[in-house]
Design a protein around this nucleic acid. Structure first.
Length: 335
DNA sequence: ATAAGTAGCCGCCAGA
DNA sequence: TCTCTGGCGGCTACTT
């Protein structure tokens, strides 16, 4: 089995500074425990190593508890809808259908004062009911995309991505895609290294881009090819400054280029070039956060070659520049 | 921001 | 007959 290892400079603990960011997750009758637990696991667990400004967390019960969840487990949240008043991010993890009017009002009001709204899986139907998604892009589990399109034609439903970021409102596909979106948010709020740390405690790879397809045959290489691709991928991660070509990688894997392309995509859901680019950008982010190396050195170190190329991909993938990213997320001189 | 050269990707097909 | 592999060519994306 392939081990996913994210290369990053060691021994630098992420210490978050600044005001606390409050996350509130909705609980309700019939909710799916898995998606709900994703939010709890990522935002709700105590993480003293992250410092005092790590996320605050509350569960808001919608309706009268206890709520029956999947697997016959009952949940009795201590707080209700009033928790939304102090929320900076509100997460809806499953279908509340129809959504009660007072919930819709509370969400619209929270959005109006700048709170971030986010759905996992069928939670998108409540966001859709607020009207806030109209004219925006959104996604949900592939099972519900047709229904979402039919019921809310004003929403631009994107069926084949893991998550969609519309700035103040974010939606993700089913189940595990919620992990990707939550980690993406951690990265957006506190930087790549913080997201990396959380991903490591979850023992999941960081991170799948939102645009990645929902259908991946095998997230991790498990077949006989995995035996060849796994060590190769580890080797690449450890020598990212090397300019690998497809021809060279195929030769290292002992396959033709055509077969290598097929096996690689079956194993990772990405083409070799896209996978390489992802981990190169990831590594560049880590270096920007944890070192004071010049951009040129970082560009060479992560294998992107030139500062021009590094800037190009930062603009493309992160909508920012390397120096702006460093200014926001550097751990060297916390302001 | 743009352009040109190069490499990557993928459908198609033939052979094992 | 089915599955896997790998070569070819044209289009696309990346790099400089």
């Amino acid at each position: 089995m392939t081990t996913i290892v994210i290369i990053m400079p060691n021994s630098l603990k992420t210490e978050i500074t600044g005001p606390k960011h409050n996350v509130v997750v909705l609980a309700h009758e019939g909710m799916a425990l898995f998606e709900f637990s994703i939010a709890v696991e990522i935002f709700g667990l105590p993480r003293p190593e992250m410092g005092p400004s790590w996320y605050g967390f509350q569960i808001a019960g919608i309706g009268t508890p206890p709520f029956k969840t999947t697997g016959g487990i009952s949940l009795r949240p201590e707080h209700g809808l009033e928790s939304l008043k102090g929320a900076d991010t509100i997460i809806i993890t499953g279908r509340i259908d129809p959504s009660p009017p007072h919930l819709i009002e509370a969400l619209i009001s929270a959005y109006g004062r700048g709170a971030r709204l986010m759905s996992i899986c069928s939670g998108v139907f409540t966001l859709a009911a607020t009207g806030l998604l109209d004219t925006k892009r959104a996604t949900t589990h592939w099972r519900y995309t047709d229904e979402l399109k039919a019921r809310y034609p004003a929403i631009h439903v994107i069926p084949d991505v893991l998550y969609v970021d519309e700035g103040q409102i974010l939606t993700s596909a089913g189940s595990a895609a919620g992990i990707d979106l939550c980690l993406y948010l951690v990265g957006r709020d506190y930087g790549a290294q913080a997201a990396n740390q959380v991903a490591r405690t979850l023992v999941v790879p960081l991170h799948r881009e939102g645009g990645q397809a929902q259908f991946i045959q095998k997230a991790v290489a498990l077949t006989h090819d995995g035996k060849r691709l796994g060590p190769l991928m580890d080797q690449i991660r450890q020598t990212l400054n090397h300019p690998y070509s497809l021809t060279q990688l195929a030769k290292m894997a002992g396959m033709s280029k055509r077969t290598f392309l097929r096996r690689f995509e079956e194993s990772t859901g990405l083409t070799p070039a896209k996978w390489l680019l992802n981990i190169r950008i990831q590594y560049a982010r880590d270096l920007l956060e944890t070192t004071s190396q010049p951009i040129e050195v970082i560009a060479k170190g992560c294998g992107l070659g030139s500062p021009h190329n590094l800037r190009h991909h930062f603009r493309e993938y992160l909508k920012t520049t390397p120096s702006a990213y460093r200014a926001s997320f550097s751990r060297l001189n916390p302001s």
